[in-house]
């Protein structure tokens, strides 16, 4: 077991190392940030001075080595644009991302779980077919398009909801919907298949043989069992939601880490882009590591393979 965990942890570090190298090189392909940071009409000497200040005059490998050295000490560097430590920026935006992800998760479960149950209970009939159309739309409509349609309808046309910004519960509604839309469909599909499997089990048959009303069979005996895999997936999806909200946060000008990443890319703010991508990657790597370990605890066969 200890050997298995050591190996998993080693793989995790390897993934993060490769991610740091890739993102480090990729941002530098986008161009020279100093041209965006100096005032219009600045002299070549000014530009050179700024390049030197950010350490961009050194060779790539020297830059990478110093980046990794700082990382080991927990230092993500200074933002070129804001001139503040990147980690501070990141942590100040994280609560907004978390709020948005939680709201989107609540929405996706509220829609996905009941519709998945309905589809399973009425399998092959109208509600099941309607659910199939819904999940197809959910999985295939891009979130920026959903966001724009929402703004057009609720902000421009009906004038019910603010089109961008944050601060009130009303600001949260549309971004949460746009972000949760895809996940609602994913949760619906898993709920449906999980429920169908449970409904075919012997303990459901016995519950019916006991003479229980069908509502009790579904709500008590089937529901709880069907929900277990859905909640596992939802836990993973929450971490993913925090990190994939770039498009939605940009469309709705929501001040989370997704928008921070977008700004970082726009201004060629290398330290910001590197930090957001690496921290997001770290979150996902850690969740996967935890799941791998939990599976090994549950299933002895996995332990033996390692």
């Amino acid at each position: 077991m200890a050997r298995y965990i050591t190996r998993r942890v080693a793989y995790s570090f390897l993934s993060l190392f490769l991610l740091s190298l890739t993102i480090f090189l990729f941002v530098r392909v986008t161009g020279d940030p100093t041209t965006l940071l100096v005032e219009p009409g600045a002299s070549q000497a000014d530009i050179d001075a700024m390049r030197e200040r950010f350490g961009l005059d050194r060779s790539l490998w020297v830059q990478y080595a110093s980046f990794v050295r700082s990382l080991v000490h927990g230092d993500f560097g200074q933002s070129f644009y804001y001139r503040t430590p990147v980690l501070e920026l990141y942590l100040s935006r994280l609560p907004n991302s978390l709020l948005l992800a939680l709201a989107a998760m609540a929405f996706s479960l509220l829609i996905g779980v009941p519709s998945g149950i309905l589809a399973a209970v009425r399998v092959g009939r109208f509600w099941d077919r309607a659910g199939k159309v819904f999940s197809l739309l959910g999985l295939s409509l891009p979130s920026f398009w959903v966001g724009l349609v929402l703004i057009l309808f609720f902000s421009v046309y009906l004038e019910w909801l603010p089109s961008s910004g944050s601060g009130t519960a009303l600001h949260l509604l549309m971004p949460a919907f746009a972000l949760g839309w895809y996940f609602a469909a994913a949760h619906m599909r898993l709920t449906r298949s999980s429920m169908l499997e449970v409904l075919g089990s012997d303990y459901i048959k016995l519950a019916r043989l006991k003479g229980l009303p069908e509502s009790l069979v579904i709500a008590k005996h089937a529901f709880k069992n069907a929900l277990i895999p859905v909640l596992t997936l939802a836990g993973i999806n929450l971490v993913i939601m925090i990190n994939v909200a770039v498009v939605v946060e940009t469309v709705f000008a929501w001040p989370g880490i997704g928008r921070l990443l977008y700004e970082g890319i726009t201004f060629r703010d290398f330290p910001v882009v590197q930090a957001v991508v690496l921290l997001g990657g770290a979150m996902i790597v850690i969740v996967n590591l935890l799941i791998d370990i939990l599976y090994a605890v549950i299933d002895p066969r996995i332990r033996l393979e390692a």
């Binding site: 012997d202 048959k205 016995l206 519950a207 043989l209 003479g211 229980l212």
Partner: peptide
Amino acid sequence: RGKRIAMILQDPMASLN
């Protein structure tokens, strides 16, 4: 069901929730 006619299934091991 359950009150006047009851039934025990083929696999009682899987019959309990």
